[in-house]
Amino acid sequence: MATILVLALSLIMVLTGCGSSNKGGTSGSTDEKLNVMLYSSLKDTQLAALKEKFTAKYPHVNMDYYTAGTGNVMTKLATEQQAGGISADLIWVGDPTNYINFKADDLLYPYDSPAAKEIPDKFKDPDRMYISGRLIMLGFVYNTNMLTAEEAPKTWDDLLKPEFKDYVGMTDPTSAGTTFNTVAGLVQHPNYGWDYFRALKENGVKLENGSSGVVNKVGAGEYKVAIGVDYIARSVKAQGSPVDFIYPADNIPVIESPIAIIKNTKNLEAAKLLYDFIISEEGQQILLEEYTFPINPNMALEDAIPVTEAEAKMLPVDNQKLAEDKVQILETFDSIFK
């Protein structure tokens, strides 16, 4: 799997200079139908809700989207480039290290959105090549029929307890950028490193191909607990599944999920409209309703840890080093688990 990702990433690096050279977008007339395509790792329900509200506000824009895990989105980008050009106008995935590579290879269009004035600079690329569109936090999703809140894990080391042997799941980091970022942060941390993942493997941790899938399997009782995404757990819980979510007592994975416009888009005007809409309070409210942390500091997610508290307890990650070490990290992970 890691070898496939290497090829995909290598292909993406040659995107600059390819495709259309039209930077001017389409006509500004609202009488003309515009098109915009978003590639994203968000859930389909989130993207469908955004599409509904966006097209209601801008009926002259036809929005489409492709949703899959971050690894699959990256592979699709590479495959399309091999075939002659990318169909996406914007990219919105859960692994911020991808955007470091995108920027380094001149793939992105710089855009200082007027809708971003309320968003802190720490969530913006200094050159405005991308901006965080949401925050994702990972923690422990547990089955409430199998564990009480007191019995559920509270720390990363709790996952190594004998009572959880063969009943812990996690998403394969090859397919999910949020899990990759979590794995890499733990690998970088002096208290964990690769020995921690060898211990997880020894305790019978199993891999799933998809962030939603592993949470659903907790609800089905296949796992007592899983390393899972906060908004997915909240969404599944709201649907009646017997799951709940606990943030780690410390070293909480807090992951920025950036959005960016592809430099060679043929639909620049529509791409800017969608970019603005996503980070506006109107767009962020849609994410809130889908149990997702907004990037706007004036908005808060009910029953979720405050962003300031999460930042104080967050798992430190060196994203620049992560971008450089991505292939090696995935290969080492595969050598332990596969």
Rank of each mutant, 00 (worst) to 15 (best):
V229W: 08
V229K: 10
V229Y: 09
V229E: 13
D230C: 09
D230A: 11
Y231T: 11
Y231M: 13
Y231S: 13
Y231V: 05
I232G: 03
A233C: 14
R234Y: 12
R234M: 12
R234A: 12
R234C: 03
S235V: 07
S235P: 09
S235I: 04
S235E: 14
S235G: 08
V236I: 14
K237F: 02
K237G: 05
K237D: 10
A238C: 06
A238E: 14
A238F: 09
A238Y: 10
A238Q: 05
Q239A: 15
Q239N: 14
Q239H: 11
G240Y: 02
G240H: 06
P242C: 11
P242E: 00
D244V: 01
F245K: 04
F245H: 00
I246P: 03
I246Q: 15
Y247F: 15
Y247E: 10
Y247W: 15
Y247K: 08
Y247R: 06
P248Y: 01
P248W: 01
A249G: 11
A249N: 10
D250C: 01
D250P: 01
D250Y: 08
N251A: 11
I252L: 08
P253L: 12
P253K: 08
P253G: 05
P253V: 07
P253Q: 08
P253M: 09
I255H: 04
E256P: 06
E256T: 13
S257P: 02
S257G: 02
P258L: 08
P258C: 04
P258Q: 07
P258M: 00
P258H: 00
A260Y: 03
A260G: 09
A260H: 01
A260C: 04
A260Q: 09
